[in-house]
Write a protein that binds this DNA or RNA. Structure first.
Lengths: 106, 106
DNA sequence: AACTTCTATCGTATTATTACGATAGAAGAA
DNA sequence: TTCTTCTATCGTAATAATACGATAGAAGTT
């Protein structure tokens, strides 16, 4: 009790839920928006964009990396982040399919 | 500390995060999938579809109602649920815009 | 080597979420 | 009225998520 019973749901349901979780916090939305509008990797200045501490931003970045939507590459003393295009397309496809399956009702 | 600092983010960022939260649990995905594939309102049999208790399912339904993605109408002793088409379209539009704004990178 | 810069992680406190049994209330059936 | 059915809510327990200061480690600079 208290634990999410994800083992009783299908892989695709859990994958979609994970994508949803990536979007389920305004800070992660802000991070993704910032990365998405760039045309290149962003090195470092993400923390300055957000009204959150460096530790908190790092946690959100780690969660987005776990889900796969962003990539981080070490570049000297900094780390460069960018959208993972492949996972982004996959998320777009999964969400579009899910959202388009709703039939009319009521 | 511990509280989500949603007040420092924009309304649209928080709205998108709320939509993400609706999708952020496999049980809610399962509920939405079940409702979405129907061509009519579903009265009652949602609990039997899910390996969760009636109380837990009711909580998930309440959360989906709060976010606006589903509607519930009292029909005799039962309650009929269905996708809220308007909010569903809104969610689709918001997500599509967000997902399509990613520029190429790396 | 010593210093600076950048980021991940640890430790920790607080709030949120998830889950379920039990109960209450609403509405039709007997 | 009494019974049954259905659903929301209460109470509660446990886990997850959020946030941040402090610290550690990696890498370049002086």
């Amino acid at each position: 009790m208290g634990t999410s019973k994800k083992e009783v749901f299908s892989n695709s349901q859990n994958r979609l839920a994970d994508i949803g979780k990536a979007f389920a916090h305004p800070a992660r939305i802000a991070i993704l928006e910032f990365l998405a509008k760039q045309n290149a990797c962003v090195c470092g200045d993400i923390v300055e964009e957000l009204p959150l501490s460096q530790a908190t931003v790092s946690q959100h970045l780690a969660e987005l990396k776990r889900i796969g939507l962003i990539k981080g590459e070490i570049e000297g003393p900094k780390v460069c982040y960018c959208i993972n295009k492949k996972a982004w397309q996959e998320a777009k496809q999964i969400l579009a399919q899910f959202l388009n399956d709703a039939k009319s009702c009521c």
